[in-house]
Simulated scan of single mutants.
Amino acid sequence: MVVLSTSPVCNQTACNAVGVPVVDLSRPRPDVSRIIVEACEEFGFFKVINHGVSKTLMEQMENTAREFFSLPAQEKEKAGPPTPLGYGVRNIGFNGDVGELEYLLLHANPSFIHHKAKVISKEPSSFSYVVNEYVGAVRHLSCEILDMLAEGLKLRNTKAFSTLLSDLESDSLLRINHYPPWNKNNNLSMNGNKCGSTRIGFGEHSDPQIISVLRSNDVEGLQILMSDPGGNSVWASVAPDPDAFFINVGDLLQAMTNGRLLSVRHRAMANSHEARQSIIFFGAPPLHSLISPLPDMVSPANPRKYNPFTWSEYKKTMYQLRLSHSRLDLFQADEPQGNNSLD
């Protein structure tokens, strides 16, 4: 969810770079599972290398996105307005939230991408082919990571997370963000919050889905919210790596693990000199899926923290609220419950 970045204040300490956990998928699987769990518990965020997605496909996807954003405004607007899917500029929510960006939000369903390609590209067949190949690759990567996470958590059903993404009715999305460099000659720029030589491109938020898989070009901008040794919340910059993917724990994964894994809060800064482009796969369940803490995550020592809800209900709440509100708080159990979660 997106919220205004009123706190913490961005200063030299807050904007220091952070060394995020790196997960090498070429290592033995038990080691990878353990590292993923530790990273999700401590950061809710990690970087993946040796991930198996071909560099050629990654570059094709980046070039395809760049070609779209280089089109004249009137051509790009044919893919909008965002309702919420489609092309949008600066308006990134239904409640007045704005950012220093333009974006394309697509459902990850192949037929949707094929249909939408007709108003996005002059070569729709090429566009839909590249995007669907990319979505298929990152969906597979997401499921592999979720299976290893489940193994590391010692769940009885190690497919508990990935089954929701592989379902044919999965509500997963692909979002492509373009942050133009802001300057006095850039009509996309606006008077917003500043942090040193950058402006906030996409404000503080957590991702509502299960998992997010992000790749960006080699331009800095991503920041995650962390606690410093004194317990203060600070913004930490994440060094870009166009050859890697960055993984976010989402709200639903926090709920399913009964709060053991925390949905990471993050934001993106608009660079003053270079355009930044990011491509994010949001892995989500079908709309009718019932979300509840998994039985393995509930015990007398760790009672159920969240009431059951469907992904459809959660999305509706997300759109109705001012985006500064915490959504999971609305689904917290009034009184901690015992091990009575739904299978």
Rank of each mutant, 00 (worst) to 15 (best):
Y314N: 08
N95D: 08
Y87L: 09
R304Y: 09
Q277A: 00
A79W: 00
E100N: 13
Q254T: 14
N271D: 15
L294W: 00
P30H: 02
Y179S: 06
I224T: 15
F246N: 04
G259E: 04
I145H: 04
C195T: 08
F245T: 02
T83R: 13
H115F: 14
S7Y: 11
H107G: 14
S324T: 15
P286Q: 03
S237C: 06
S142A: 13
S189V: 15
E169P: 02
R276Q: 08
R327C: 09
S128R: 00
G88E: 01
D228C: 12
C40S: 10
L294M: 07
M226H: 10
V219S: 00
L252Y: 09
P303F: 09
L287M: 11
V48N: 03
V238T: 06
M269V: 13
L101K: 14
F245P: 01
R66I: 01
C10H: 10
K55Y: 03
E144S: 10
D97Q: 15
N183K: 06
L294D: 07
A268P: 12
V53P: 00
D171F: 07
M226A: 11
V23S: 05
S216I: 08
E313N: 03
M226V: 12
D228H: 12
R34S: 04
I113K: 06
L105N: 04
G283P: 13
H178C: 11
L214K: 04
R215P: 00
H51N: 09
S128G: 05
D218P: 02
Y129I: 07
H140I: 06
Q74N: 07
V37M: 04
L165A: 04
L287T: 02
S170N: 06
F331S: 07
P180Q: 08
P30E: 00
V131R: 04
V2S: 07
N307F: 11
F69Q: 05
P240C: 10
L342A: 07
G201E: 02
P28H: 05
L168I: 12
L101P: 10
P30K: 04
I113L: 00
E313R: 05
P180V: 04
N185G: 09
P229K: 13
S189I: 14
L188V: 13
V234L: 08
S126P: 02
L146P: 07
I145G: 00
D171C: 11
T64E: 03
I200F: 06
R304P: 03
